[in-house]
Nucleic acid binder design. Sequence first.
DNA 1: CCTAACCCCTGCTTGC
DNA 2: TGCAAGCAGGGGTTAG
Length: 276
Amino acid sequence: MPELPEVETVRRGLADKLVQARIETVRVSLPKQVKRPQGDARAFSQGLCGRTIQAIDRRGKYLVFTLSGGHWLVAHLGMSGRLLVKSSQALPAAHTHIILTFDRGLALHYQDVRQFGGLALWTEDPYLQAPLAKLGPEPLSDDFTAEGLYQKSRGRKLAVKSFILDQKIIAGVGNIYADEALFRAGLRPRKAAGRLSRKDCQGLHRAICQVLEEGIAAGGSSIRDYVGADGHTGGYQLTHRVYGRKGQACLVCGRPLKSIIVGGRSSVYCPHCQSS
DNA sequence: CCTAACCCCTGCTTGC
DNA sequence: TGCAAGCAGGGGTTAG
């Protein structure tokens, strides 16, 4: 499940190969994965063909391709989306729903088994409108601060786990990195956000930055579907301390890790080490 | 405004 | 072995 570190890894792989590439053809075999104009494969294709990719950036879990002529391509990988750079001759693997081909003999394949993601064509600045405009601060920028986290949490009754999964609070944290960050911060997933102290928020802020930076350094976490733009898996799953380790021994205290549902998401934590 | 519930979707795992 | 139910979950929408 691609979260910020996985999306950033994909971004880097795409940028290496596709900046300055010119889109020559677009083929859509599952129109519902064209999110803008919704389901309109023809308009999507016509808007893209002939344009050059000028930059590839990331905002939260979204990828933003800046194209020539005031157009943008915005991608969200959902649960199982993959963006793979291949040769323009490469045959599509199963669940490949959109293919762009470029000059220089390259192609970009969008694969998505669970079909939760998609690609969107924008003809006006996507950063100024939802969903990008609604995102909270980028966690690895100066915009993300412990004090900001503390202020936003005031009066909120929902669980801290749900709070940090809210993309309006922080952009890019998903279930894996939320569990890992809460473990590092020593916080129970169900603790009410409004009951976090300033010190809690400082520790949480630090933990979130740490796990995201480590995730990027490892090339992301490959749990089920995730691979980078070159098809390689990431390595951060080997370093997970709680996510996916239900029932196993805590790496710090040795007691068994517990799994609970918080805000509809499975959450693994150590009842002993995460006592506040 | 805030929160919870539901939906989308397929493939893997679990249970009988 | 076969089949069905359960589970995974980001983000959008709807209901309360």
